[in-house]
Write a protein that binds this DNA or RNA. Structure first.
Length: 147
DNA sequence: GCCAACGTTGGC
DNA sequence: GCCAACGTTGGC
């Protein structure tokens, strides 16, 4: 899961009450479907810092709550308001994410790109801009071993 | 700041 | 349904 550290970084997650944060604001159908269909409580995710000096994987988090309606979509005052989403029929969902730990070092995007073992990694696909991306078990183990 | 790569919107 | 215009993402 990507986040801009200037907006909400791994340190912010660590400081949250319960070290848990609702992952609101996702407004992409592919990303929504991944939250809805692929994320269960206890599942682990990489926390990725994007749009910053050193883009890369900085920590581990886990899903604390399965997908449920994103209330920010209902609020006309909110930046992420979307009139297509109504409480009776929510278009947008979010999960709760809980801090697990920071990595001992940042696994930079540049470093991940150098690894032929990660050729198929969705994060490295050309033009990818999704804020939530799949990682296979093999990719997961390989990346963690780089730490 | 630049720009490639997308997703979305809306006219037709 | 097509597609140009536009907005956003995010690395560099």
């Amino acid at each position: 899961m990507k986040s801009e550290p200037g907006e909400f970084g791994i340190d912010d997650l660590e400081r949250r009450p319960g070290q848990t944060e609702p992952w609101d604001g996702v407004r992409n159908y592919q990303a929504r479907n991944m939250m809805r269909d692929q994320m269960q409580p206890g599942d682990r995710v990489f926390f990725y810092h994007s749009n910053c000096e050193q883009p890369g994987i900085v920590g581990l988090a886990e899903i604390a709550r399965a997908a449920y309606p994103d209330p920010t979509a209902f609020d006309p005052e909110h930046k992420h308001y979307d009139p297509k989403s109504r409480p009776e029929q929510p278009a947008w969902l979010m999960v709760d994410v809980r801090f697990v730990r920071k990595l001992k070092r940042t696994l930079t995007l540049a470093e991940l790109k150098e690894r032929p073992e990660l050729d198929g990694l969705a994060l490295l696909r050309r033009g990818n801009r999704l804020s939530i991306l799949p990682v296979s078990p093999e990719q997961w183990d390989f990346i963690l071993a780089l730490e």
